[in-house]
Amino acid sequence: MHQVLGVSFVAQREGRIPTRLSSLWDEKRINNIECYEHTIIGTKRSRPEDEAFGGILADEMGLGKTLTMLAAVADSLPASCEFRRGNRLSPRPQSRATLVIAPSVLVLEEWLSDIQDHLSSRQLRILKHHGSTKAKQ
Rank of each mutant, 00 (worst) to 15 (best):
R47W: 00
G54K: 02
T98N: 08
A135G: 04
N87A: 11
L5A: 09
Y36L: 03
T43W: 04
W25N: 01
E110W: 14
V105E: 10
P18C: 03
K65S: 01
E34G: 02
L63E: 01
L119N: 12
V4T: 09
S120I: 09
Q123P: 00
A102I: 11
R96V: 04
E110K: 15
T98M: 07
L63S: 04
Y36C: 04
L77W: 05
R47H: 07
P18N: 04
G62S: 08
L119A: 03
P103F: 08
R96A: 04
E37L: 01
E14K: 12
T133E: 08
L77T: 15
M69V: 10
V100C: 13
R88G: 08
Q123L: 13
F53G: 05
S90R: 09
L124F: 14
F9M: 11
A102F: 05
L119F: 07
D75C: 07
H2K: 13
Q12C: 05
P91W: 05
E60V: 11
A74R: 06
R45M: 03
S113R: 15
R88Y: 12
P93V: 08
T66E: 08
S23L: 02
A52W: 07
A79F: 12
V100D: 04
A58R: 00
K44L: 02
G54I: 15
V7I: 10
L108A: 14
M69F: 07
T133S: 09
C35L: 05
L77F: 00
R122S: 15
E51H: 07
E109H: 13
L89E: 10
D117G: 09
H2Y: 07
C81A: 10
S23K: 03
L5P: 00
A58E: 08
A102R: 03
L21S: 03
W25F: 06
L57V: 12
R20E: 04
E109S: 11
V100S: 02
R13W: 01
L70Q: 02
I126C: 11
T68V: 08
M61H: 05
Q12A: 08
E37Q: 13
Q94H: 07
I40R: 01
E14P: 00
T98H: 06
H2V: 12
C81H: 15
H118E: 11
